[in-house]
Design a protein around this nucleic acid. Structure first.
Lengths: 208, 208
DNA sequence: GGATTTATTTACTCGTGAGTAACTTTTTTA
DNA sequence: TAAAAAAGTTACTCACGAGTAAATAAATCC
């Protein structure tokens, strides 16, 4: 395997505090998530992650108990970003349609970022039984919130009536997929992509 | 590892012809794709696939040269299904909108089947460099066809003007995602799902 | 029915990667 | 500044899975 692109890493940089530990822990996650996204979880060895951080594998075990732990932490960070977007929208008094749009754009934006896209690039078979269960609960939570917003919109007349569950999957699919195809070095900004996809979903494709 | 659910397998069933070989080869693919989809490619060992077929691993190597070969064959079968849907629609003289709808429904349907969903459940990092290149070419081909149909529709006025590339990704995302969440044992039939998702995409969500 | 080819098995090799033990170095604390 | 705690490293183990070699069994051909 060729030389690895070295990361800006707290090891090797001198700093001060006790909370260094957190920054190092975070650095492991930042590097791991990047490599997981780029090469796949199984295909990324912890030796490789360590090497990218200019450190040896046992150092990583000083911050995490095992590989599953690292992946799950990445997934949780990604999910948390999406959930915070829900939070913002839940106390709003706007129509379902408006809340849906705001949430969907924020959701789409996280899919352009490493932790966000990690949640859909890694399939949950790779997790331990315990983590998988937790992860699925988080996913279900998000899906239910999305579906609830859609149902609100259907009730208040701002959205077309229909099968809210299926509609939620349609939206989630289009949005999640961003994490599969979008690379930041392309011609479109994350904002443009998020806005564009959501606008496609809201207004549809058919001319009238 | 617990006992494996045994498959209806040409080994153990007596039959006649020389074309048995093809049927056995196909049985390997059928079983492999099912297990790949269920547990992930890397997490599925060939020993496990063999066991599910009541056979030993070297037998599989009698039909395929390596694991990559098997996966790639699965992917190709899935892609072929989607491509044949394109074929049907390309010689049609209907509007872009109508052709898009027909194609999208057929595409969505393949995502409810093992080989179809395999194309999106397995991320292409797992392939050898050579297979990955071929697979990406197939994906690009499909994406370009989809985009071309959308462009036709935008030109003939049957679809709303917009960024056809982004629209193609929006559609592909919602459709591909079916392969991630849909399980045939659920309340909706494949047809209902395909029709429902495509209708969501075509008409959008916003009431007017 | 013996010879040849095809199908399948048993019994390996070999590399890799997760995880650990035990030692060393650095930092903190008293 | 000595003792204790924290951060890292070297040097392993151990399991597992891809792929192969060589022998055996079954089917086919003459």
């Amino acid at each position: 395997m060729a030389t690895i692109a070295k990361i800006d890493s707290p090891w090797g940089s001198q700093s001060d505090r006790e909370a260094k530990r957190n920054s190092k822990r975070q650095a492991v996650l930042d590097t791991a998530v990047r490599l997981f996204n780029a090469k796949g979880f199984q295909a990324t060895s912890l030796d490789y992650v360590a090497q990218a951080l200019s450190v040896t594998k046992p150092t990583i075990y000083h911050y995490f108990s095992n590989k599953d732990d690292i992946l799950f932490e990445c997934l949780r960070l990604g999910m948390r970003q999406i959930q915070s977007a829900i939070g913002e929208v839940q106390q709003s008094a706007a129509t379902g349609r408006d809340r849906l749009e705001v949430f969907a754009v924020a959701y789409a934006l996280t899919m352009t970022q490493e932790f966000g896209m990690c949640t859909i690039r890694t399939s949950d078979d790779q997790l331990s039984a315990k983590s998988r269960k937790e992860f699925r609960a988080l996913k279900r939570e998000i899906h239910e919130s999305l579906q609830a917003i859609i149902e609100d919109g259907m009730k208040d007349g701002s959205l077309i009536e229909g099968d809210a569950r299926l509609t939620a999957f349609t939206m989630a699919g289009a949005i999640n997929w961003i994490g599969r195809w979008y690379r930041p070095d392309q011609s479109m900004s994350p904002d443009q992509v998020a806005q564009g996809v959501v606008s496609n979903l809201m207004t549809g494709l058919v001319a009238r």
